[in-house]
Design a protein around this nucleic acid. Sequence first.
DNA 1: CTTGACTCTCACGCTGTGTCAGGGTCGACC
DNA 2: GGTCGACCCTGACACAGCGTGAGAGTCAAG
Lengths: 274, 274
Amino acid sequence: MYTIGEFAAFGRVSVRMLRHYDAVGLLRPARVDERSGYRFYSNAQLRDLLRIVELRGLGCGLDEIAVVLEADDEREVMRDLLVRRAAELEASVAADRARLARIGERLRILEGEHTMSAPIEYRPIEAVTVYAVEGRAPGAGPENVSPVIDPLLERLTGSLRAAGRELIEPGIFWYDDIEGSEELGVHVSFTADPQPQAGEGYDVVELPAVPLAAVVTHRGDMPSIGESYDLLMNGLIDDGYRMVGPCREVYLEADDDLPQSQWVTELQVPVERN
Amino acid sequence: MYTIGEFAAFGRVSVRMLRHYDAVGLLRPARVDERSGYRFYSNAQLRDLLRIVELRGLGCGLDEIAVVLEADDEREVMRDLLVRRAAELEASVAADRARLARIGERLRILEGEHTMSAPIEYRPIEAVTVYAVEGRAPGAGPENVSPVIDPLLERLTGSLRAAGRELIEPGIFWYDDIEGSEELGVHVSFTADPQPQAGEGYDVVELPAVPLAAVVTHRGDMPSIGESYDLLMNGLIDDGYRMVGPCREVYLEADDDLPQSQWVTELQVPVERN
DNA sequence: CTTGACTCTCACGCTGTGTCAGGGTCGACC
DNA sequence: GGTCGACCCTGACACAGCGTGAGAGTCAAG
């Protein structure tokens, strides 16, 4: 029998936490003195405590730990928990890495920005007809969108080749919000023939003319395109415009045999004067 | 001027959050209708909103973001924040990696455990005099302790060699709690000469005899020693004993020219019968 | 005028932990 | 037997960032 203080010292846990574990039913003291309310723990419970501190150290939730402690086949449940937790950790590491990459990009922007001006043009855009495919990204931001783009592009080029059509530059991507969903609609397209023809695996879409758009030309690879987006968004607000429609990316020079650092992409966003 | 709903859609934030940002003073609406209480946002604020969602996405706290938005030299402050955040993320990734490693180890134990029995011996241990050095680890667990061990070992072997003494096997490590601190005392030692002699850079310590200790022999490398500790702790509780003192590790066969997989280490923990 | 979409405030929930206040209990020492 | 210091008790508030819900007011279109 240990007092709560001794017991806490064994597990290197705070007394507060032992009381909390009692309150939530995770680890009830073996005996509670009726008169004083003092908690007493048995050494059989030391084992549970060690489990708890270990699993907590791995970041498992108290409810998950409770399941393990109460399980008939502890090993089975424990293994499940650990495997699940490992998956979560992998995901967390991946997310953090993505964040680090974005921070790196932002820092580069920050260093360069004070020498760069914002060469934003404001001009109308003509309607254009394209062959397009559509997908969905789980959210905004490059980390969500990039992995969706590639398969879409594959699908589109595949379908167009199968239909015997040439790829006509420029490629045009655009994005739109989906009603009542967190997702982002992702559209990948190539310019259509003069007499557009429907076909299997792609849609014929007419992108409407835009009376006024803010346009910026991005020269460089795709990972750094966020830089140009940033410039565009901030610039148009500063210039007294506001976005009124979804954004388009026009790939003016983006051959596969050209290094990405030499690609030229136009970002177009419909705006209105304030 | 946008209503809260429109504004929320732009930043892909929930309406709830915009109200929250208002409440905590992070992003106050440009205008609030006196009669209805409706919030209205200007497009100049769109820029701040974009900053907020971006920095939130990177995991920055609202208070840190507030500092950036209110800063005179935004770029300066922003860079500081990003650099700091990057460091935090690195740390977080490292921590998660460590957790993953531990999970891997646990899973290995779990798979093996059902074929292994717990060959724990219970026997007295004689007093022994050693030459020792002492350090501190920031907490329990191999991830805290390992990085402390190596420098201590270097220091001890260095001092003993400088004093012209041979290293007498076995090496003995032990750990003890430090009063009123989260830290763990870490002691590294080698057996002393028959007539122990004090010297520069090491202490002469007599490890007291232990009336009864639970002892398990660990055969294998150091990373897997947690497995044996686990076995020992759980085994002695099951066998009806309890820990009454700090743990010792005795390195019976641990020459540097022996592969770690063939090392033999004895774990000794003072116990009492319940 | 009604209806439906939107907005308002206020409030509680989650997690795991620290901390503070105000008061009992225990054991040792005088 | 009294006193003191170390320990323990309960209960409450705080944290960060967001979800959810209740009950009520507002706005614009039909």
